[in-house]
Design a protein around this nucleic acid. Structure first.
Lengths: 214, 214
DNA sequence: CGTGCGTGTTACTAGCGGTAACCCTAGTTT
DNA sequence: AAACTAGGGTTACCGCTAGTAACACGCACG
């Protein structure tokens, strides 16, 4: 009953698991988020049931697969957030890091953001948004803690930081999604525009006509 | 060839169509976005093929069904955006309108936002984000035009307005999604926090320790 | 020798979106 | 009146998906 000892079988299983994840990665990179379990199993050179033995469930595979990219992206974002520069530069670097990531691997990004929601089984939870888009949630919480740690927001700072964390991440996400589809401008311009928005240019802008404006 | 004349058959077909949409509405309200064509047909008291005769396709039904709620929501948002008040109040009213809508009918909201992406057919387009989340896109464009019409943003105002439109809508969406799942505060607090974010409180906040801060 | 145990397969279930083929009734034409 | 046509409707199917039960091989250990 020595739980700490790693047997050969365990190590072999871990290696197998990694191989399967890499195969899944390739398929997702090729087919996008609709990658089927059949296709992944075929790419790995095996059949479905062993996939299910390793990951239990499609969402299990999804979770394991997502964790890799999510962790990598979060590390990059943390690095950008911790760079030795003033706040504006940090915000711009963070935005640029995220946008560069989704630009480099749109299929993976799409897989992480729109995980097809399971669907047919009886798990139709009414708990809205519970297991959807874990990456967005994670990034939101992460950003919230950074904001709360670093900024002096007065009373209610914790609530405020969380709202802002999720709000900013959502802004980044939606703008990135739209930008990736239409490519209306360069990445740098997008970053500047979003930073300007966060810097209150919306409130500071003048009205165009006589009325009070938007 | 009098195209304007509505025959009895046409009117009957339109009525039928409306009945089907109402049935679909009920099912979506009950089952969320996983509502199957079978379930909708059963609710309407008929079978699948006639559903397909009317809407061609699941995404056709989705589009028709979404248009109703989307139009209704967009009307509310436009009204909030056009209210006779200063800019801050309008922004808060718009945020509150959206949040009240998703709070009132989370299932419908979920259906509009996460339309299950089709999936199995060979339309696996690499055009990322093309047919996903039409409501978010529409709201983004709508807000962009309002911003561009009303605000004086100097050179490049059109690009800036579009980026902001999509960014703000995404912020609203993500924050709303998170809030709906966790309910960490009242709607009014959420609205105030988001408006504060848009008003540049992020840039204006002081650092907590010696460093340059976030 | 046999007895597990891990690894793999085949073959299946249940349900999905979508469709082809038929059926039946009402109205029109000859 | 008899025949023919036009829609609305159904049954029965296809191909696909996620997920699983049951069976088959290989290899260590008593």
């Amino acid at each position: 009953m020595d739980t700490t000892q790693r047997t050969d079988q365990q190590r072999s299983a871990d290696r197998r698991r990694r191989e399967l994840l890499e195969a899944a990665d390739r398929v997702v990179l090729r087919d996008g988020p609709q990658a089927s379990m059949n296709a992944i199993a075929a790419e790995a050179g095996i059949t479905k049931p062993i996939l299910y033995r390793h990951f239990g469930d499609k969402s299990g595979l999804y979770a394991a697969l997502a964790k890799r990219h999510t962790d990598a992206l979060l590390d990059s974002l943390r690095a950008a957030l911790d760079a030795p520069a003033d706040r504006r530069e940090r915000v711009e670097a963070t935005l640029d890091t995220y946008l560069a990531a989704i630009e480099a691997r749109p299929q993976v990004y799409r897989f992480l953001m729109h995980p097809t929601e399971g669907g047919h089984t009886a798990d139709q939870g009414f708990d809205i948004g519970k297991h959807s888009m874990p990456l967005l949630r994670t990034m939101g919480e992460e950003l919230a803690t950074v904001i709360e740690e670093r900024l002096d927001l007065g009373p209610g700072s914790q609530q405020l930081a969380r709202v802002w964390g999720h709000g900013i991440v959502g802004m980044m996400h939606a703008a990135g999604d739209w930008w990736l589809g239409e490519r209306p401008c360069s990445r740098a311009e997008l970053v500047r525009s979003l930073a300007d928005l966060l810097w209150g240019r919306l409130a500071a802008a003048g009205d165009k006509m006589g009325g009070p404006g938007f």
